[in-house]
Design a protein around this nucleic acid. Sequence first.
DNA 1: GCAAAAATCAATCATTTTCATCCAAAATTA
DNA 2: TAATTTTGGATGAAAATGATTGATTTTTGC
Lengths: 250, 250
Amino acid sequence: MLTPERHKLILQLIKEKGVVKIQDLVDLTETSESTIRRDLTQLEEGKYLKRIHGGAARLQGKLQEPSMSEKSSKSLHQKRQIAQYAANLVEEGDSIYLDAGSTVTEMIPFLPAKEIVVVTNGLMHIQALMERNIKTFIIGGFAKEQTKAIIGRGALASLENYRFDKCFMGVNGIHPQFGYTTPDQDEAMIKQMAISLSRESFVLADDTKFSEIAFAKIADLHTAAIITNELNEDQKETYTSKTTIKVVTA
Amino acid sequence: MLTPERHKLILQLIKEKGVVKIQDLVDLTETSESTIRRDLTQLEEGKYLKRIHGGAARLQGKLQEPSMSEKSSKSLHQKRQIAQYAANLVEEGDSIYLDAGSTVTEMIPFLPAKEIVVVTNGLMHIQALMERNIKTFIIGGFAKEQTKAIIGRGALASLENYRFDKCFMGVNGIHPQFGYTTPDQDEAMIKQMAISLSRESFVLADDTKFSEIAFAKIADLHTAAIITNELNEDQKETYTSKTTIKVVTA
DNA sequence: GCAAAAATCAATCATTTTCATCCAAAATTA
DNA sequence: TAATTTTGGATGAAAATGATTGATTTTTGC
């Protein structure tokens, strides 16, 4: 049984029954426990389910509020610093792409409102963008609940119609060898496409993010910068040495 | 039986009956007394129940059911009635289009969740649809702030890729001569296109809505129904005489 | 009311199940 | 063919489980 088939089956079972046991999945798919475990790990990384001892469970609807721990923490402050730096890169008249993701959302309050056009696949961004009266386009496609992102074949086709001066990407992690990474292949494809449609690409990464499906090998980023902070000299070396990208400390 | 399943079962039983005996839980879950005791200890720590000698009991004190606040306005009640009627028209396996608008939003809680696919241009719908785990696609295009609708050339192009079994339209008004009306030409075009892509079309209109740019002449609706209520006999005559549409009173 | 009997309890331990990790074989791709 | 990806099995660690023990609480019989 092929990987996408198994994933689909697992998700369907979880949707129906709420929980599913690993052994049942092994029997059903006629594969090994190892394989099912890998599947579950991947699906959990993509925020499609929650692993529990003995199997997996549907994760309940709302993502919990950002807990105090995180809200007040250094992490948020960092995110905002980076976001502000990134937003200042946008010039009046620019057409930009904003990737789905919480770090990118933080950019919106700092964007120059006049005369810019924003295209996004992030449902979370829409409200904030409209409140600032920014001309906003959303790409069409499948709405993924967990990340509030538009993904899928349709989304790729929809995205193809645009060109951007700059695009801004969130990442789940940065891997020295594989580039910027995100756990979900579908989201990775969208990111890749957006980068290819953009004159300049920027990756927003706070240093908590410093490994899964690479959505852009560093070589694919023609003109790009990792916008981050508190990167130590070793890390800087690692990334800058591989290509011509800039590492900016906000 | 997996731990979360047992926990869920225990909580459900306690919710229903107020108290539950350990031995009953042992029999029901086919596990050992030790396991149930551990479960109860954990659930008590999480403040989900109170342990008592021989079992566990619901803890009183807090969460009350939703208050009176919501269920007054007659208009809302009407809208909901209509919405519920419309939602019942959707069958499992249907692919449907939901037009942007508050009346249509009301349909979502009543939709059969299984196996349906929803396409929409209504940003307001997305959250509710995703919460119900309904496969949701949004069309791409310009995000209009006032109505939280996706519109424009891009939206039309995006919409073209779909076909629907049924589509559900909100309207601003109904005009005897011009048909269903909406004030915005862009939105009207989207509506018209959706109707042309759909095997059956339904218009949701409470009687406060019974005249600007017609988005669909009655003749354009092949198979369609106005779903409304408290329509008087004169009005009924006016609309039914013009074409084969049905007027349904919810 | 009181003591014996019964039931329930927390704590501990051995067993079983599940887990992450590693490695080699198979399958797929270049 | 070589290189990469996917798979399945093996390993020891970690977690969950079930039985046992003796203490504590409740019930029973008087």
